Simulated assay, not measured.
Amino acid sequence: MRDGRERTPEKERTPDKQARRIAEFIAPLRVKPGAKVNLSEDFDPAHKAGIKDKAAGQELLAVGVELLADYQRRLAAQGTHGVLVCLQALDAGGKDGTIRHVMSGVNPQGVHVTNFRVPSAEELGHDYLWRYACRLPRRGEIGIFNRSHYEEVLVVRVHPELLSRQRVPGADEAGKAVWRRRFREINDWERYLADNGFRVVKLFLNLSKEEQRTRFLRRIDVPERNWKFSAADARERTFWDAYQSAFSEMLSATSTPWAPWYVVPADRKWFARICAAAVLADTLIGLDPRYPEIHDKSRRELAREKILLEAEAPEGSAPDPYAAKLAKQSKGSKQPKGSKKTKGSKKTKRRQR
C-alpha cells in the first residue's frame, strides 16, 4: 500500500509488488513475538506514516477495500480457511467505524460481526472462552469480534471483582498467576484455530487520552451522538494507567508467530481504517484463496447447458450477450491509436482552431 506522497505508476501495480507494499506498510505496526512492550513509549497514537492528509488516506482506503472485496469472494468460494478479526480498544477508540468503513465493499453474507457485552448468566456458567468459541466464523467466512476474548485479561484484570463472578476455583488467591495462565490458554487456543485453518487477526486501536476526551465531548455536544455516550465510559478514564499497563502486558505475552498483534495508531480515524484494511488484506493475500477448479465432466455439462441457453435467445439478440460484450471490448482495446477519428476529436480540433 502506498504512503500517499506520490502516485504509483500503473506498471508497478502488479500483485506481487502490491503485496510487498502492504507488508512494508504494516511492518511497523506488528508486535514482534517475544518483545517486551511499553505501550506509551513504543507506539505513537498520532502516527500517520507520512501520509499527507485525509484526502490521500481516502484514496488508499478505497484501494484496500477493493482488494478486500476481491479476496473475500475467493475466500468464500474456496471454503477452506476462515478468518477471525479481533478488535480491541478503549471506549471511543473507533471500533465501529473501522468495521463499517473497512468492510464496506465485501459481501455481507460472508462477514459476521459479534459485539461482546457483559456476560449473561448462561455464559458465566461456562468457561471464559466458551462464548467466544460459540461465535467463531465458519470456513469461507470472516468473523469480527468487536471486543474479544482479550476482555478476559483486560477489563477483568482492571476490575478484579469481575473475576469472582466467573467462579473460577482458586482464582481469588492466584494473584498474577491467573493472568499468566490465561495468556497461555489464549495462545494455545489461537494456535489450535490456526492449525485448523482459521487465521486470527488481532488489531489494537491505540488511542491517546486527550483524543478520547475530545471524542467524549463531541458525543455530548452533538445531539445525534448523545446515545453513544455513557457516564460509565467516562468513569473508566480513571483507570487509564491500569489499562495501559494491562494492554502492554497483553501485547507482550500474546503476540505470537501464528497470531501476532498489530498496534494501530487511532488518533486519526481515517489512518486507523487504512491500517486495518492493510493488515486484513495482508492476511488474505498470505492465505491466497483460489476459486475452485472444475473437472472435465463439469466443463462438458456447462458446455451443454450453454448451448441450450443460447438456443433460447430471442430473434435478433445475441445468443450470449455477455460473450458478445467481452468480444466488443476486446476488439476496441486492440484498435490502434488514432486509427479512427471520433466526433469528440473533431470537436476538440475545432476548439483548438
Rank of each mutant, 00 (worst) to 15 (best):
R184D: 11
K176Y: 02
W189C: 12
D195M: 09
Y132A: 00
Y128E: 13
I144M: 06
W189H: 13
L163P: 01
I142H: 00
E161H: 07
W189E: 13
E190H: 14
E173L: 14
E152F: 00
G175K: 02
H149V: 01
E190N: 13
K202L: 00
R139L: 01
V118E: 15
V156S: 13
P160G: 08
V200H: 07
E161A: 08
R138E: 06
I144G: 04
F145E: 10
F145P: 11
N146V: 09
L193Y: 05
Y128V: 11
R157M: 10
R165G: 07
R199Q: 06
P160Y: 09
I144T: 07
N196R: 13
S120I: 11
R199S: 05
R138S: 06
P169C: 10
F183D: 12
V156K: 11
F198W: 04
H126L: 08
V178S: 08
R165C: 09
G175W: 04
A121W: 06
E151Q: 05
R135N: 13
S120G: 15
G170K: 02
L129F: 02
L154W: 01
G197A: 13
E161D: 10
W179C: 08
V201G: 01
A194T: 08
E161R: 07
G143M: 11
E151F: 05
A194W: 10
S148M: 14
N146T: 08
E185W: 09
V118A: 14
R147W: 09
